[in-house]
């Protein structure tokens, strides 16, 4: 009898254990964690490990034989070219993001106003620059700017305009890298803004119309407030990606002329891989982390604040 009771107690305990395990596995958070685990592992291997390795490299001397602390960063702060690269990266990222946002905003409105029957075709066509691998499309741009075969200069010559040294003059070269970045990135803004526009309730526009709001007032008090979070997130995401851009500058100018189109990533590559100073290259590439972190904190805090207010 005692034996039978003990057996049943053990069975109950086992049952409790298995049911708690079942409960754990039935929890949505557990399932979500397990499903994202492969991605977490992938990020750990491909992002977190290299990031910490880059920090480690940035603390070594040129020959990577001894620890030098922050000396590489202190060395960079004394270099004229480094501050030029900081300045150029800011010009490149800020100008490109502003133009991408403006063009994306305008085109999103234009597409939004196309009758829904033909809208899909336009959306697809306008996304083409964004879906082509940037290295390939930039190569096509390089040929358009090429000194021997430039299509633009060929047209200019036909209409009596002097050819332009597109990539040989500092200001034209900067214009070209920003232009190509805007061309590639504007469709992303367009599609995000279009999604935001479609989610604005029609009743708000009807109410504004009844209140006698004009076009500008409708835009200012209805459309933009409703799109604000999307605008902020898109701008943040694009700023990060544009700051870290490598392929456009690398293919188009390689930082020339006179290093005046370099951004952080291309200069880090020049110094680290081509110049054989990997620790200094790692230091250059890490320099953009605090800039982007501060930007991200401000924008995300604003979004959370507005979310709480709502």
């Amino acid at each position: 009898m005692v034996d039978a009771t003990m057996k049943s107690d053990a069975a109950v305990a086992r049952g409790r254990q298995s049911s708690s395990l079942q409960r754990t596995f039935q929890r949505k958070s557990t399932i979500a964690f397990l499903m994202t685990l492969p991605l977490i592992l992938l990020i750990a291997v491909l992002v977190i490990y290299p990031a910490f390795y880059a920090v480690h490299l940035a603390t070594l001397n040129k020959t990577m034989e001894r620890y030098v602390g922050f000396s590489n960063f202190l060395f960079l702060f004394k270099r004229e070219t480094f501050w030029m690269v900081v300045w150029q990266s800011c010009i490149f990222a800020i100008t490109a993001v502003i133009f991408k946002a403006i063009i994306g905003f305008i085109v999103a409105h234009l597409v939004h106003n196309i009758p829904s029957k033909g809208q899909r075709k336009w959306r697809g066509m306008l996304l083409i620059p964004w879906v082509i691998p940037p290295a390939m499309s930039t190569l096509a741009w390089l040929w358009l700017f090429d000194p021997s075969y430039s299509a633009f200069n060929w047209i200019f010559e036909r209409v009596g305009i002097s050819p332009i040294p597109w990539l040989g003059d500092v200001y034209w070269a900067r214009f070209c890298v920003i232009l190509v970045n805007v061309w590639i990135g504007a469709p992303f803004f367009m599609i995000m803004y279009l999604a935001a526009l479609k989610s604005v309730p029609e009743q708000l526009y009807e109410a504004a119309k009844i209140d006698g709001a004009n076009w500008w007032q409708t835009m200012r008090f209805v459309t933009i407030p409703m799109m604000r979070n999307i605008i902020a997130i898109t701008a943040l995401f694009s700023t990060i990606v544009t700051f870290a851009n490598f392929d456009i500058v690398r293919v188009l100018t390689r930082g020339d002329p006179l290093d005046q189109t370099h951004v952080f990533a291309t200069w880090a590559f020049r110094v680290g891989i081509e110049g054989g100073d990997i620790p200094l290259g790692a230091s250059v590439s890490l320099f953009m982390v605090p800039i982007l972190t501060i930007g991200a904190i401000f924008i995300l805090r604003d979004i959370v604040k507005r979310g709480n207010e709502a």
């Binding site: 090429d146 000194p147 021997s148 075969y149 050819p163 040294p165 597109w166 990539l167 040989g168 003059d169 070269a173 100018t253 390689r254 020339d256 002329p257 006179l258």
Partner: peptide, 21 residues
């Protein structure tokens, strides 16, 4: 030199010659 020579890479000069310019 050509006006945009500050931006030339290792393929630019090849194209310059082959194009006949």
């Amino acid at each position: 030199y050509p006006a945009d020579s500050p931006s030339w890479d290792d393929a630019s000069n090849n194209r310059w010659l082959v194009s006949g310019r």
